[in-house]
């Protein structure tokens, strides 16, 4: 039981320790708050700008969820298609990998040409940056169905569709939820990039304006808010993963 409690406490101890160390270093070496503000300074800034930060953070959250939702729907569909057809898989992989290799920062200006400045570019950036891991993982889960299992059903006259939906899709769920943890943080990066370049609201936009005005504590406060929200969203997807696919997590490693 002792080790279980230790495991539960570890994230908090490590996090608090990290910030204490940071604070100590800043004070011991008298680092200027323009270069690296101490956590206490940042915390004060978070409190001071709380209404502004909340307003922009909610907007960013909304953009992220919209983009993430699109990525989940599109990723599942495309993953199912790729996983169930070797032809489509082989044909479209180079395209997908090529597209995924493009830095999405470079795509934002194009989105602005098409849709103007507003909520569309951040949502689409979040979508474009986060669908790839979902597609790859769902496709892998479906494509690796055991051949014996396939034989059992095919000998009964099951169609390809039966096999994909009865075995492939449920089997891909652990891969899918695993990929969501990656995708949610990516979507988040995507919406902030989109806001920095093509929006008048959101944490990304706040960051751009604060750094242009050399309001260093505000920049750091915004970064801290981003990090905290990221951890929360990751935790939500991790929770969803555990509750949906508990059957897949029974090894000692997952416990």
């Amino acid at each position: 039981m002792k080790t279980k409690n230790q495991l539960a406490a570890a994230p908090w101890v490590f996090t608090v320790g990290f910030f204490l160390l940071w604070e100590l270093v800043c004070r011991a070496f008298k680092i200027s708050s323009f270069i690296l503000p101490a956590p206490s300074t940042i915390l004060l800034a978070v409190w001071e700008y709380r209404s502004q930060l909340t307003y922009h953070a909610l907007h960013t959250l909304w953009m992220t969820f919209a983009g993430f939702g699109l990525a989940v729907g599109f990723g599942l569909l495309l993953g199912m298609l790729l996983g169930s057809s070797r032809l489509i898989n082989a044909g479209s992989y180079p395209l997908l990998v090529g597209f995924n290799s493009i830095p999405k920062v470079a795509v934002v200006p194009i989105l602005v040409f098409w849709f103007g400045v507003g909520w569309v570019p951040p949502v689409l950036t979040a979508f474009l940056i986060s669908f790839f891991p979902i597609v790859v993982n769902v496709a892998t889960g479906i494509a690796t169905v055991e051949p014996e299992m396939e034989d059992v059903l095919r000998a009964l006259g099951a169609s390809k569709k039966d096999i994909v939906f009865k075995i492939g899709v449920p089997r891909a769920m652990p891969y899918f939820f695993g990929s969501l943890k990656v995708a949610i943080t990516l979507a988040y990066v995507g919406s902030v990039i989109g806001e920095q370049n093509a929006s008048n609201v959101g944490i990304g936009n706040l960051l751009t304006r604060a750094s242009a005005a050399f309001e260093v504590p505000l920049v750091w406060a915004a970064l801290v808010v981003l990090a905290v929200l990221g951890v929360i969203m990751y935790a939500i997807t991790a929770y969803a993963e555990r509750s949906m696919t508990g059957w897949a997590q029974r090894s000692q490693m997952a416990a």
Partner: peptide
Amino acid sequence: GAPVKLAGMAFQNPTMLPW
């Protein structure tokens, strides 16, 4: 000329679906 539909199969690996 098609899967016979009247067969049951079992293999060395039980291939039960874990979910």
